[in-house]
Design a binder for these strands. Structure first.
Length: 933
DNA sequence: ACGCTCACG
DNA sequence: GACGTACGTGAGCGTA
C-alpha cells in the first residue's frame, strides 16, 4: 500500500474513545451475551456508534486519517502533580469493566487505529496529534464534546459533538467559555472543575473567570495585578489562592508535545476487512448489526448459533454431582491454592454455614467455595469436637480446621475485591454474617434473585426447589445432620466429615444455577429488572437490617400488663355470660357455644367442619347478643399482646438493644418486600389501642424518626395505566380522590359530599385495584349484592378505561402466562386458564399485580438510590412498609433529610418510566413512630 | 403441619 | 346458570 505523507488536504479525525464508551453504556440497557451472559451492552452501543460514524463519513469533510484514542491506567502524570486529581471519580460500573478491552478489539475489527499510552490521558494524545496535524498543514476534527479539549480548537482544528451533531469552532468555544480557545485554560484554571476535582479559585465560576481574563488579558497578568481588583472578596480569593490556581492551570493544560510511538501516516483510513470484522461481530453475537454490515460489505453473513441455555447446555450435564470430589480445606496452603484459582476465574460461588437462621445472631461455622461445576470445597472453622456429655468439652474445636482469624484474613481481600464476582443463593444472609466479621462482600450475584426476576409467581426460589427444577438434582437434606425436636443441634455440632459434602454441595449447586440462569436472564428479558431492581437492593437492605430500630422494652412491658388486666376482666364477663369457663382463644369451642349451645343464627361450617367465628361473623352477631362483642374485644387485645407487646420484646437484640427485621426480597410475587423475624410491616395503626404500640418504636437520644409515605400511589398508578382522565385530573388538581369518585358516580356535588358516600366510593376505588366483584364489594360495604353490582356498573360507565384495562390485562395474562409492571417486572399467572374458582383468583391477581407491582418497583428504585442521595446527611434508612420509608435522623438534619429523601421518592420512576400522574410523598416526624406517621 | 384469625399496605 | 370471590403478606394459637 502506498503511503501518503500527511499534509495539506489531509483530514485527521480523532475519536474520544472513553466518551463513546460511556455514552454507549448509559444509552443501552445492561445487555448480556446470550450464550454465556457476558455483559456486552456498552460494546454493542460502541460498535453501533462506530458503524454510524463510518457510514456518515462521506463528502468533503471525510477523513483521510482516523484514530480512536483511549485512556490507559488510572494514574497519570497529573496525579503526581496533585494527588486529589479525579479523586471524586466514581468507580467504573462492575459490568462495564470486562467490556473495556472489547471496545479496543472492536475498534481494530473496524480497521480503525486504536491508540492509548500508559500514564497519559486520551486528551493529551489527542492534543499532540491535533498539533502535529496543524503543523503539517492538514485539518483535524476531534469527535468529542469534552470541554477540556476546547483549548485545542482553531487554526484547522474543530470539534464535533456527535450527540448534538454540532460542530464547535472558535466561536462555539467562545460561546461556552466567554473566551477564545487560547485562553480557555486560563478560565478553567480559575473556575476549576468539580468532576475532575480541579480546585480552581473558590467562588469563581466560568462567567466570572471569563470576565477577569478578558479584562486583564491572561491569567499571569491577572494574578500579577490581582491587587487592583475592586471587589474585596474576589481580590482576596485570587491573592490567597494563586498557587492553587496555577496548579489548576497545569492540571487542565493538555500536553500537546508528547513523544508518540506512531506517526500520523499510521492512522490512514482503511476499509474494514470483512474477514476480521464479521467474525468479531459474530463472536459478540450482535445479530442485527452483523446482518446489516454483512449486507453493506456484500459478504456472506456469518452464522450466529442460537445457543440454547438451561437443560441443553451439555457442559452442565456432563459433570455429575459427586460428593467424593469435594475438598476439605484445612490449612493456609490449600486455601491459598483456592484463592489463586478464584483469581484466575474472576468469580466464585460462596456459601456460609452458621449456627442458626437469624443472620443477626448466628455465628459463622464454615465457608464453602466453588469455581466450576463439581469443583467445590468446604473450609470448616468452628466445628466443635465430639465431646460426649462432658460439660467442659463444649468449647474444644474439632480437628481438621484452620484458625478462624487466619482464614478470614486470607478470604477478606478476595471477598472485597471489585474484580471478583461473588455468587450466592440468598447472598443477603451470607453478606450479613460476613459483614459482622468486618468483611464487605462485593460485587455479588444472587441465584435466588435471578430466579425471582424470571420466575415470580411460578414457583419458590429456595435452593432445593431450584436445584430440582433446573439441575435435576435433589440436594443432600439438612435434616439428618441437624436432627429435630429435642435432639436438634446446630451446624457447629455436625462432624466435619459429614459437613464437607453438604456444605460444598451448596456452593456447587449455586454455581451451576448461576451458569444456567445467567443466559436465561437475558432471554427472559429481565436483565434490567435484575440488574436495577434486585441485585442493587441487597446492600441497601443489609444496611437497613443491620441498623435495626430502637424499641423501648418498658413501654411494651407496661402495655402487656395493661392488656392482661383488661383481658382478665373480659374473660370474667364472658364466663359469666356463658355460665362456665372455656378457652376463649379456641374458635372451635367458641363456635359450638355460640351456635349449638346458645342457638344463635348464622352459623356456617367451613370445610374442616368447624363453625366460622371470624370478626365479620361476630360483628353481625353483636347486634343480637352481648357475648360476641366481648369476644371481639378480647381477641383484639390478645392479638396485640401476643403478637406485638410480648413477642417484640423477645426480638430486641442483646448486643444492639434494637430490633432487626429481615426483609425477604422474593417473598411476594408482585415485587413487594416482605418482613419477618419479626414482621415490622404489620405493626398496628388502624385502632387507637394498637396504634399506641408504635410509641415503643423510638429514636435514639438526639435523633428523630422521619416517616415518608407515598400518597395513594396505587390509585395514581391505576389512573396512569388504565388511562382515566378524570382520575388523572383529580390528582393533578390535588383533589380528594375518593370524594371526586363519589361525586362522579353518585352525581353529588363536592360541596354536598357526605362522609358515608365518600366511604363507599373509597371502598370501590380499592375494590378496583383488587379486581372488583359485586360479592366482595357487597360484603365489604355490608350492602345487598345487587346494590354493589349497581355501583360497579356505574363505575365502569363513568371510567370506561378501567374495564378496558381489566379485560386487556386478563387477555394478556392468558396469552403470555404472565403480566408485567411498567418497569418490566414479570409476574407469572399459571392458573389464569384454570377451570373453577382458581380462575377467578388468578384473574383478580393478574389485574392487581401490575398495579401493586409497579408501586413496589417505584419504592425499590427509591431505596436503591437513597444511600447515595443522603450520604452527606447524618441519617439512616431503617424500615420499608410498602409505601413508606422510615428514617432515623440527627435532630439538626431533619429538614435536609426530608428534602433529599422526598425528592428521590417522588422521582423514583424516572427516567425509564414517565407517569401522567405525579407521585406525592407526605412527611411526618417525631420521637416515636406514632408521632412520625 | 395446617387452618383460623387478624395485624399491615 | 352456578360457583365462589375482593389483592399482597407474616405470626400466634389451637388442634390434629
Amino acid at each position: 500500500m502506498s503511503e501518503t505523507q500527511f499534509g495539506t488536504g489531509c483530514h485527521l479525525h480523532l475519536i474520544d474513545g472513553s466518551a463513546f464508551i460511556f455514552r454507549a453504556y448509559h444509552a443501552l440497557p445492561p445487555l448480556t451475551r446470550k450464550s454465556d451472559g457476558l455483559p456486552i451492552g456498552a460494546v454493542a452501543g460502541f460498535c453501533n456508534m462506530l458503524h454510524r460514524y463510518v457510514e456518515g463519513n462521506t463528502g468533503p469533510d471525510a477523513p483521510t486519517h482516523v484514530a480512536v484514542i483511549f485512556d490507559k491506567g488510572s494514574h497519570t502524570f497529573r496525579n503526581d502533580m496533585y494527588d486529589q486529581y479525579k479523586a471524586n471519580r466514581e468507580a467504573m460500573p462492575e459490568d462495564l469493566r470486562p467490556q473495556m478491552p472489547l471496545t479496543r478489539e472492536a475498534t481494530k475489527a473496524f480497521n480503525i487505529a486504536c491508540e492509548e499510552i500508559e500514564g497519559f490521558e486520551a486528551d493529551d494524545i489527542i492534543a499532540t496529534l491535533a498539533v502535529q496535524a496543524r503543523k503539517a498543514g492538514g485539518k483535524c476534527t476531534i469527535i468529542s464534546s469534552d470541554k477540556d479539549l476546547m483549548q485545542l480548537v482553531g487554526d484547522g482544528v474543530v470539534m464535533h459533538d456527535a450527540m448534538k451533531n454540532k460542530h464547535i469552532d472558535r466561536e462555539g468555544v467562545f460561546e461556552k467559555f466567554g473566551v477564545y480557545p487560547e485562553r480557555v485554560v486560563d478560565v478553567q484554571a480559575l473556575a476549576g472543575d468539580s468532576v475532575d476535582n480541579v480546585p480552581g479559585a473558590p467562588g469563581i465560576g466560568i462567567k466570572t473567570a471569563a470576565l477577569l481574563i478578558n479584562e486583564y488579558g491572561d491569567l499571569d497578568a491577572l494574578l500579577e495585578r490581582a491587587g487592583e481588583i475592586k471587589q474585596p472578596k474576589r481580590r482576596e480569593t485570587l491573592i490567597n489562592h494563586a498557587d492553587q490556581i496555577r496548579l489548576s492551570r497545569d492540571l487542565v493544560k493538555l500536553d500537546d508535545a508528547m513523544d508518540l510511538p506512531f506517526r500520523l501516516e499510521d492512522l490512514e483510513v482503511l476499509d474494514p476487512d470483512p474477514e476480521v470484522l464479521m467474525p468479531f461481530l459474530a463472536e459478540m453475537e450482535f445479530r442485527t448489526l452483523t446482518k446489516r454490515i454483512a449486507a453493506q460489505l456484500n459478504v456472506e453473513e456469518p452464522v450466529i448459533e442460537d445457543k440454547a441455555p438451561a437443560s441443553d447446555v451439555p457442559a452442565l450435564e456432563a459433570v455429575p454431582f459427586d460428593q467424593a470430589t469435594y475438598e476439605h480445606v484445612s490449612d493456609a496452603a490449600a486455601l491459598q491454592t483456592w484463592i489463586d484459582l478464584i483469581y484466575t476465574r474472576g468469580y466464585v460461588a460462596v456459601d456460609t454455614e452458621t449456627t442458626g437462621l437469624n443472620d443477626m445472631t448466628a455465628d459463622l461455622v464454615g465457608v464453602s467455595l466453588c469455581v466450576e461445576a463439581g469443583h467445590a470445597c468446604y473450609i470448616p472453622l468452628s466445628h466443635k469436637a465430639a465431646g460426649g456429655d462432658d460439660l467442659f468439652s463444649d468449647d474444644t474445636l474439632a480437628d481438621g480446621q484452620m484458625p478462624f482469624d487466619q482464614c478470614l484474613k486470607m478470604l477478606k481481600p478476595m471477598l472485597e475485591d471489585p474484580s471478583i464476582l461473588k455468587i450466592g443463593q440468598n447472598m443477603k444472609y451470607d453478606a450479613k454474617i460476613l459483614a459482622r466479621l468486618n468483611i464487605d462482600v462485593a460485587p455479588i450475584d444472587d441465584t435466588m434473585l435471578m430466579s425471582y426476576a424470571m420466575h415470580a409467581g411460578l414457583h419458590g426460589h429456595g435452593m432445593d426447589t431450584l436445584s430440582e427444577r433446573y439441575l435435576g438434582h435433589t440436594p443432600i437434606p439438612i435434616k439428618p445432620l441437624l436432627g429435630s425436636g429435642k435432639s436438634a443441634r446446630t451446624f457447629d455440632a455436625v462432624p466435619v466429615a459429614e459437613a464437607v459434602p453438604y456444605a460444598a454441595e451448596d456452593a456447587d449447586i449455586t454455581l451451576r444455577l448461576w451458569q444456567v440462569f445467567k443466559p436465561l436472564l437475558h432471554q427472559s428479558q429481565v436483565t434490567r429488572v435484575y440488574e436495577t431492581m434486585e441485585r442493587p437492593l441487597v446492600p441497601v437492605l443489609t444496611g437497613m437490617e443491620r441498623s435495626g430500630i430502637k424499641v423501648d422494652r418498658d413501654t411494651l412491658s407496661r402495655m402487656s400488663n395493661a392488656f392482661s388486666q383488661k383481658m382478665a376482666g373480659l374473660e370474667d364477663e364472658i364466663y359469666e355470660i356463658v355460665g362456665r369457663k372455656f378457652n376463649v382463644g379456641s374458635p372451635a369451642q367458641l363456635g359450638e357455644i355460640l351456635f349449638d349451645e346458645m342457638g344463635l343464627e348464622g352459623g356456617k361450617k367451613g370445610k374442616t367442619g368447624k363453625y366460622s367465628t371470624g370478626a365479620d361473623v361476630l360483628e353481625d352477631l353483636a347486634t343480637e347478643h352481648e357475648l360476641p362483642r366481648r369476644v371481639l374485644d378480647w381477641r383484639s387485645l390478645s392479638k396485640l399482646k401476643s403478637t406485638y407487646t410480648d413477642a417484640l420484646q423477645t426480638h430486641i437484640n442483646a448486643e444492639t438493644g434494637r430490633v432487626h427485621t429481615s426483609y425477604s426480597i422474593t417473598g411476594a410475587s408482585t415485587g413487594r418486600l416482605s418482613s419477618n423475624d419479626p414482621n415490622l410491616q404489620n405493626i398496628p395503626i388502624r385502632s387507637e389501642e394498637g396504634r399506641r404500640i408504635r410509641e415503643a418504636f423510638v429514636a435514639e437520644q438526639g435523633k428523630t424518626l422521619v416517616a415518608l409515605d407515598y400518597s395513594q400511589i396505587e390509585l395514581r398508578i391505576l389512573a396512569h395505566i388504565a388511562n382515566i382522565p378524570a382520575l388523572k385530573q383529580a390528582f393533578a388538581d390535588g383533589h380528594d380522590i375518593h370524594a371526586m369518585t363519589a361525586s362522579e358516580m353518585f352525581d353529588v356535588p363536592l360541596d354536598e359530599m357526605t362522609p358515608d358516600i365518600r366511604r363507599q366510593a373509597k371502598a370501590i376505588n380499592f375494590g378496583v385495584i383488587y379486581g372488583i366483584s359485586g360479592f366482595g364489594l357487597a360484603r365489604n360495604l355490608r350492602i345487598p349484592r345487587s346494590e354493589a353490582q349497581g355501583f360497579i356498573d356505574r363505575y365502569f360507565e363513568r371510567f370506561p378505561g378501567i374495564r378496558t384495562y381489566m379485560d386487556d390485562t386478563k387477555t394478556f395474562a392468558k396469552e403470555h402466562g404472565y403480566v408485567q409492571t411498567l418497569f418490566g417486572r414479570k409476574i407469572h399467572t399459571p392458573n389464569i386458564g384454570a377451570k373453577g374458582p382458581q380462575a377467578g383468583f388468578a384473574s383478580r391477581a393478574a389485574i392487581n399485580a401490575p398495579i401493586q407491582g409497579t408501586a413496589a418497583d417505584v419504592i425499590r428504585r427509591a431505596m436503591i438510590r437513597m444511600p447515595s442521595a443522603i450520604k452527606n446527611i447524618p441519617a439512616q434508612m431503617l424500615l420499608q412498609v410498602h409505601d413508606e420509608l422510615l428514617f432515623e435522623v440527627e435532630d439538626s438534619a431533619v429538614d435536609d433529610l426530608i428534602g433529599a429523601a422526598k425528592d428521590v421518592m417522588e422521582n423514583a420512576n424516572e427516567p425509564i418510566v414517565k407517569l401522567d400522574v405525579k407521585l406525592t410523598v407526605d412527611a411526618g416526624q417525631g420521637n416515636n413512630w406514632a408521632e412520625a406517621h
